[in-house]
Design a protein around this nucleic acid. Structure first.
Ligand SMILES: NC(=O)c1ccc[n+]([C@@H]2O[C@H](COP(=O)([O-])OP(=O)(O)OC[C@H]3O[C@@H](n4cnc5c(N)ncnc54)[C@H](O)[C@@H]3O)[C@@H](O)[C@H]2O)c1
Ligand SMILES: NC(=O)c1ccc[n+]([C@@H]2O[C@H](COP(=O)([O-])OP(=O)(O)OC[C@H]3O[C@@H](n4cnc5c(N)ncnc54)[C@H](O)[C@@H]3O)[C@@H](O)[C@H]2O)c1
Lengths: 207, 207
DNA sequence: GGCCCAATGTTAATAAAATAACAATGCTCA
DNA sequence: TGAGCATTGTTATTTTATTAACATTGGGCC
């Protein structure tokens, strides 16, 4: 099934919201309710769910637990997938601490750094390995996804290496735009872009 | 001028890339070169620049310095705009350290927290004020934008408050989707969504 | 039991974004 | 100096994403 990237993003958001519903002991939710929580329209929700072939049986809204499972079947892999953070500095630690244990099928299994102070310690709940061992560890731990939080100047070179060693997906939080061969999926995010966007729309509103 | 959000994002990215060019002592750049660095097409670049009414005089590509200024005139406000981080924990510290001083027209002037350990200390280059003083400080320091990095459970309530106190733009890094009145611009980002997206496309590629 | 109605799934229409096409410009170099 | 050519700015087309429209479903309620 070939799902649009935007739909995949929203599926992740639906699940996050649905998990909150479970916390609140809510077992059913209407499309318009789910939509409202995410600032989108009910049609958008229904359309996305149509794309993944989900339909509710009851007319009391979607079965929260069932929908969580269905989304999982689509966006999660069957077996779990292992993830590592490269560069366990400020951002790396924040991401590791936040991400660790949040998704059952995505295991944060290691971090890598070249700072001797950090190596072989457990930081934000993950063991930090020396970057020099990364080739071996990627294979040993079957790491498929790398979250890149090293200083910008090293990003390109490290990426080339880890791709050679078998990494198939990269989440790049570095300022440096990367190039990856086809077959490797790359997602990039720069906070400053988002913040500048906010500033722009604030300015446009007021001047 | 009403610019599409996507264009605004890209303008920010263009500027970031152009600033790197300056570092490399590159004074001119072709549209296709700029495009390649950001994994987009040259047409996209030219189209965006058309929208902001920029044209190069020379045919040696765009004048890097000039384009940086032009983009600034569009996306920056005339005078600078003040920003604060609310919740100076792991992520707050990372963002503060990263963002501080990066853009001339966006000043990170304060952080707020309710942890006595943090209050009145300088953390990641910014002074941390008690959250209780936020109403006064927003006015005193003329803070317009808040970067929200508090625990998810407090996000909604704090947002309501700071909006009441005059905040006009919110960058929400919390897992909690927020609601803001019209006139306030909200941007939300959840890392897990991005990482799950990577995982999805990695899975789709290989299975 | 059957009418009503809220909510869904789906197709059709609209809007937004990206890409392609191409004429115009003016630099380069024979 | 002028033909060739790389690069630009802009309009047209295509693709993608969102929204609207609507028939259908089946539970609630009298
Ligand atoms: N802090 C943020 O909020 C933020 C936001 C967006 C982007 N970024 C980007 O993320 C990156 C990291 O930011 P940070 O604030 O965490 O910086 P940081 O300096 O705190 O962390 C960088 C880490 O990478 C390690 N490192 C350096 N070279 C390495 C190498 N060759 N191999 C392995 N590890 C290496 C360092 O030892 C350090 O632990 C930077 O590129 C920054 O631009 C940060
Ligand atoms: N760490 C990440 O990479 C990451 C990524 C995405 C989202 N988030 C979200 O960002 C938020 C912060 O994450 P974190 O890892 O920095 O957590 P954290 O616990 O390290 O930081 C939270 C900070 O907020 C402060 N705080 C708590 N209640 C407050 C209140 N009422 N008023 C003012 N300050 C208050 C705490 O004292 C603490 O300093 C969470 O909502 C988390 O879900 C974090």
């Amino acid at each position: 099934m070939k799902l649009p990237g935007k739909t995949v993003e929203r599926l992740s958001e639906y699940r996050r919201t649905l998990l909150e519903c479970l916390n609140e002991k809510r077992n059913f939710i209407f499309s318009h309710d789910l939509a409202a929580r995410l600032h989108i329209t009910a049609v958008q929700v229904r359309r996305d769910l149509m794309l993944i072939g989900y339909s509710s049986v009851l007319r009391k809204g979607y079965d929260v637990r069932e929908l969580i499972d269905t989304i999982g079947k689509i966006i999660d892999s069957d077996s779990s997938m292992n993830v590592a953070v490269i560069g366990i500095g400020n951002l790396g630690r924040a991401v590791a601490g936040y991400f660790k244990g949040k998704r059952s099928k995505l295991n944060l299994v290691a971090s890598f750094d070249n700072d001797p102070q950090k190596i072989n310690k457990v930081i934000s709940g993950v063991k930090c390995y020396p970057y020099n061992d990364i080739e071996r560890m990627i294979k040993e731990l079957d790491i498929r996804i790398a979250i890149l939080t090293v200083p910008p100047d090293f990003a390109r070179e490290l990426t080339e290496e880890v791709v050679r060693y078998g990494i198939k997906g990269i989440m790049n939080f570095t300022t440096t735009p990367l190039n990856v061969p086809s077959g490797v999926y790359l997602e990039e995010y720069d906070m400053i872009t988002s913040i500048e966007k906010v500033a722009y729309f604030v300015k446009e509103n007021k001047i």
